[in-house]
Design a protein around this nucleic acid. Structure first.
Length: 139
RNA sequence: CCAGUCGGCCGGGCGGCCGCCUCGGGUGUCUCACUCGGGGAGGAAAGUCCGGGCUCCACGGAAAGACGGUGCCGGUCAACGACCGGCGAGGGCGACCUCAGGGAAAGUGCCACAGAGAAGAUACCGCUCUCCUGCGGACAUCGGGUUACCGAUGUCCGGUUUCGAUGCGGACAUCGGAGACAUCCGAUGUCCGGUCGCGAGACGGAGACCUCCUUCGGGAGGUUCCAGGAGGGUAAGGGUGAAAAGGUGGGGUAAGAGCCCACCGCGGACCCGGCAACGGGGACGGCACGGCAAACCCCACCGGGAGCAAGACCGAAUAGGGGCGGCGCGGGCUCGCGAGAGUCCAGGUCUUUUCCGGACCGGCCGCCCGGGUUGGUUGCGCGAGGCGUCCGGCAACGGGCGUCCCAGACGAAUGGCCGCCACGUGGGGGAAACCCCGCCAUACAGAACCCGGCUUACAGGCCGACUGGCACU
RNA sequence: UGGGGCGUCGCCAAGUGGUAAGGCAGCGGAUUUUGAUUCCGCCAUUCGCAGGUUCGAAUCCUGCCGCCCCAU
């Protein structure tokens, strides 16, 4: 899954649906462009621990998503995974199961649509608009 | 063997599957994908406490001043506040450890409390010399004096001492009474006390001693001691303090004192050793020169400022700036079919500043130029480089030779899962070798331009040198 | 990356060489029939930590720890 890298993109996804698990919090944003490739970003704040701990949390989450990227990703959705300290020690199989559940929950939530339109208005200069369809379209 | 000191090093290993970043080669449908090969976190990558490289800015050169830093001596280093060696001071039986360790006779300042005195010493108690005085007070009278006051006499009060009586207080004894006892009360006697009261006598520091006189009451003189006052001399002793202006002993003195002497301490011309810091000796001085500069400060030396988010290049769309050319000549209102006329209102730039006055511009189109946001490229890893070895040096380090190329991201790669082994630790089994099970088992911790140091964190382990003790030979 | 500030009782805080004010809270007592108010008393042992300078350190110096803020 492609990575989110810009601060503006993270702020946009933060307005989407949140679903919390023990080891992480998942934010999901439904995009107006249904065919857009699914993307994902990671946030691990300084509260979690020092640099080694933060790196490890992010890498475990990243690996779990990589292994199930076909099952988790659907076109037209952006995600941000906020790592928690529990992701350091949690059983890896359990981590994968939690991620799958959180992704399903995020997509099922209808509120993502409204958030998507407003964000699209706010970030209309983003390069996504160059290849995508015009905003404001409803399904 | 036990206890300890110092220095150096490591900080998991092998393998499987699926992945990530980057470099080079190849292929393709060539801002990407595939494939082959190489590389991919640390001793601290950390904290950001110093020093440099590099880049930009500033600057005619330098110096001074201000500000900041450093501070024994010598060396090493690109440089340093780092390191090495030495010296000094302190600590430890020792190996060894710790130290911002220049200047207090350049100046200013501080040293609370206590204490007499806290820094050009002081003088409270005390010690001591000389001189003077030798019950005190009040009142009255007289005399002297301008006054202040002084002297004499008297009275009163206080004072001192002796004696007496006795009250008082205490102890003891006897007797009587009360009470179950403990004990209490009263009387008498003896002894002691004298801070109180009474009476009488004496005194004039009421003290001691000596001599003389005597009417035996006392008087005169002297010595010594005592008390008070004035003027000196002291700094030994007391005590305070963190610190008291050399220490101890002796001589000396009125008492004392480096006043003198011996020893110790201190300063110290000069001599010797050392590149130096410093060390050894030391004529002589006779004791000044307390501590604090991590108080201000003085002296010596060093420092232009900022930082890779430095800096360089490219740069779409939109908006805006400048230049040139062409066309046009502001806006509102009223009248008019219209051309146009009337009226009102400006704004900017220049004219040195304000006012007045004057000139120009304002819109549209085209071309060009420069700045610049998101972004992209670069800076970006051959270096004060790593490893090995030899030589010089006590060492830090320097030199020669050989060999190697070894992370390069930018929401940030080096990961996930698993097996075996090593070591540690806990539990269980076994006589033992050993076996089984558990540990998020295995710390501290993640490059962000680079390098040299410092500091801090760290499970566990290895090696070497040395010290003290015990035992054995 | 660079710069600045703070840390003192449970809370808010004063004090910048001489042995740690004050307020709130808490505890005990008095006043009151009871409560509130008021009054009195108590309440700091490593002044974030560790070293050092000094006779003496919350204060001065050095090194750490934690928190906050600013610029880019």
């Amino acid at each position: 899954m492609k990575r989110l890298k810009k601060r503006a993109e993270f702020l946009a996804v933060a307005r989407g649906v949140r679903s919390a698990r023990r080891a992480f919090v998942l934010q999901t944003l439904r995009l107006p462009d249904e065919t857009a490739e699914p993307r994902c970003g990671f946030t691990v704040s300084k509260k979690v621990g020092n640099a080694v701990v933060r790196n490890r949390v992010r890498r475990r989450l990243k690996e779990a998503i990589r292994l199930d990227t076909a099952a988790l990703g659907r076109p037209g959705h952006d995600h941000v995974v906020i790592g928690r300290r529990e992701a350091l020690a949690q059983d890896f199989a359990r981590l994968r199961a939690d991620l799958a559940g959180a992704f399903r929950q995020g997509r099922a939530d209808r509120r993502g649509r409204d958030a998507g339109t407003t964000v699209a208005d706010a970030s209309q200069n983003s390069h996504r608009d160059h290849r995508g369809e015009p905003p404001g379209r409803t399904r």
